[in-house]
Design a protein around this nucleic acid. Sequence first.
DNA 1: AAAATGTTAGACACCACTGTCAAAATTAAC
DNA 2: GTTAATTTTGACAGTGGTGTCTAACATTTT
Lengths: 235, 235
Amino acid sequence: MDTLVQFVNPLYAVGMETTSDLSREALAPRGQAAKRLSILDAATAVFCRDGVAAASIDAIAEAACVSRQTVYNHVGDKEKLFVAVVKEVTARSTARLFETLGTFPETPVDVEHELTEFAVRLAGNCMCDPDGAALRKLIENEGQRYPELFATWKQYGPGKSWPAISARFAKLASAGDLDIPDANLAARQFMALVNADLPNTYYMGQPPTDAELLEAATNAVSTFIRAYRRQSAAG
Amino acid sequence: MDTLVQFVNPLYAVGMETTSDLSREALAPRGQAAKRLSILDAATAVFCRDGVAAASIDAIAEAACVSRQTVYNHVGDKEKLFVAVVKEVTARSTARLFETLGTFPETPVDVEHELTEFAVRLAGNCMCDPDGAALRKLIENEGQRYPELFATWKQYGPGKSWPAISARFAKLASAGDLDIPDANLAARQFMALVNADLPNTYYMGQPPTDAELLEAATNAVSTFIRAYRRQSAAG
DNA sequence: AAAATGTTAGACACCACTGTCAAAATTAAC
DNA sequence: GTTAATTTTGACAGTGGTGTCTAACATTTT
């Protein structure tokens, strides 16, 4: 239940709950939601940097500018902290992805141009976003050790994202712009092509520049459209 | 120096040195190269499973069926062990990639068919290979903590692999089969497309089945060729 | 069989971390 | 200004890891 709420409603996990009466968690007693967020952010960073097992609560507390005891008071032990982090970051990443998906050019005038601009937003806001990168890393590294959490993440992360992405490409096809027999496949390939040309430095600290983003998007969309353009006459 | 030898000559690091006099390392005194390999393999597995910082030498020793002291005798402390593992796995992966690249269809009769078969080999032997997967994971997680090692890896891993891959696509283009203005870009996109459609379970233990491999290769090559096919008349 | 070499088992000091506790200090509420 | 809630501080036992050492054991080599 608790789990579901956090995954389904991003606003909740982002700490934007109305501080009213809806979310009477045992955790955040009254006001200091900021401190809780600070702890989760710090934990995300340290978990990513050191790995969950090697991450020390002291390091997290220090990064959050908080005493160790406060960490235990807010979230509990390390495993609960990790679960809270994954839920938080999943909610944020998913929200950001859906926000970006809202700008997908479903009935474009200039397919290539508008799809390229969308790819820039996708790469900048989602793929290279610190939350997204952190989440990928955490899931990839620790997923096997927390099967339940992993399953829940799959359900509310990829399980919701991919159909949404595919649906956009299906609409784009039915708008007559491209010839896409399999929207799921096209969606996977589109994402892969955008990723293919991003400088591989972005999971090592530095995010790509705007120019790099644009180049990656341009190359990806160019190839994507050449592969999926509608044939004038016979196919 | 030592570093260079191990990276440049895969056979050395794989433990196939002639056991003669060429490689008078302080490490492998005379015969028991098998034990050393066993230690490196076990360390690879445990490092991947637990992360380097959280991996215990005892766990590695147990996995290698060896006493802890023997680990220290052969390789030294944990950092040296990690460096040895990365070199070993890099050498193995690179060797396997180049072996597979040797089967690239440079002057094919049926481009699509032969490129698909190559993609199957590439995915099966390189992308989903345990060594390759382990290496990606280790580099991604620990690269930042070992800048020198990371730099050396980049030099002898991607720095050697990508030009070799690109060169194949350039030859394929000049053979008249495809229209590839930028072989580097095409190579990146080809790899990305093959990866895009592999079941994402392969870094979680189970390798993909032959059928899954073939489907991924088919989809990837189909899209790749549609994007890069030579236009009959004007382009 | 003897000698040299490699391997194991156990013990060791040392260190870093966990999770808990109680008392002091700070901050917010009324 | 007093009361209540939160946070900090420092201490604590317990755990598990490192890297070293030594003496016993096993395996080759000669």
